[in-house]
Design a binder for these strands. Sequence first.
RNA 1: UCCGGCGUAGCUCAAUCGGUAGAGCGGGUGGCUGUUAACCACUAGGUUGUAGGUUCAAGUCCUACCGCCGGAGCCA
Length: 430
Amino acid sequence: MSDIYIDEVSKHIGTEVTIKGWLYNKRSSGKLRFLTFRDGTGLLQGVMLKGEVDDGTFSLYDELTQESSLKATGIVRSDPRAPGGHELGIRTIEPIQIAAEYPITPKEHGVAFLMDHRHLWLRSSKQHAVLRVRDEVIRACRDFFTERGFVLVDAPIFTPAPSEGTTTLFETGYFDGKAYLTQSGQLYNEATAMAFGRVYCFGPTFRAEKSKTRRHLTEFWMVEPEMAFYDLEDTMVLAEDFIIFIVQRVLENRQKELAVLERDLEKLSKVGKPFPRITYGEAVEILKDEGKDFAWGQDFGAKDEETLSLRFDRPVIIHRYPLKCKAFYMKTDPQNSKLALCLDVLAPEGYGEIIGGGQREDSLRELEAKIKKDKLPMEAFQWYLDLRRYGSVPHAGFGLGIERTVTWICGRDHLREAIPFPRMLYRIYP
RNA sequence: UCCGGCGUAGCUCAAUCGGUAGAGCGGGUGGCUGUUAACCACUAGGUUGUAGGUUCAAGUCCUACCGCCGGAGCCA
């Protein structure tokens, strides 16, 4: 007899094993009783027939409530009638704790109720599948950069001053002074890129914007590579390779989860080279073609992004936005002083922006002028300007939003399911 | 912050024109030897978000507040 996990049950056919987990659901037709177990790795149906198990075990069925914790021992067998093709012929059950009446029943619930019970909702099969995909996406990010010689150099969470100005930061006490929660590791990444060549950081970021949409969280995770000696072109190639790598890894390793989520695999399998690349100007023309009233110089709204992303069957790269739409550190396009050497990547099927980035301003004089123009505090940026004083080189980078990527790959319609405990405008519980 | 919507049983919802608050699931009891969100029968369960108002009569109409959901702006 051995303790096993449900995901390896097919290797133990005909032998006696013990499953440690929770009761997911139960059904009975009198002398024949079914108990579905959950152990974090999968689901397994257990079967008991009166007379084939001792009466004590048989009647435990009545006591065991949904989500009661237990150990179940029995013989693994194949049966086409069992979900997943295998089942456990129960010999004994050892209850660990009989669960109180479980609030999440096998029927429908509203989102507000489920979010109030997020700590339990995570046990449900779809939520479980989404977070397994998240795990795969994160590992793929790390593997991608590691395989290419990037160094993980994390940026701080506490920052001394607003960096980009426009977005709102969470303010927090810092001993006798103030500190702000980071909204991007990028500026620090530029410093570490000058030390290590190619770097990335991966961590939580915080935005205190009062956004109330399915595409926003106040706390989200972002992976940000930054590369010395990369120009915009190199960066577009990297972003394309990166997204393809992530999608391929999920397709290879998380088939089961995508099936639980009923994701259309055909759509994901189209994510390959080359991604369409259009300029901001071309994007504006597309929007006008679609009959939109759109003036050059505006930034794209959520609806515009959706329209653009629906035009293509794979992620689309949009580059060279007007300078005024972008942050101060973007490098001006030498071919057109109105444009920034930047890129956004929009996920298909209407999901919209998952990557934003570009080539950074590497000239000390230009950067100082941009900081002045945006009326940002020059003193706060001295360390950042030092990077242009001491061996400045062309460099570029981008940030990929983990939750947006997971939401798209999983085909979900709201970002809140792509993170274990979402922090949103009106939700910080549980 | 602005715009729109919704608050009825533990959950998801219904209740016609203002006229005795109802169903499914979940809970309880009983039945069923292959169930797949099992099924069948019975059963318990309600200060209709809160506070006022109109009316013979309010879940329903009016006012305010609270909570939540969706969208906009901002962005990943």
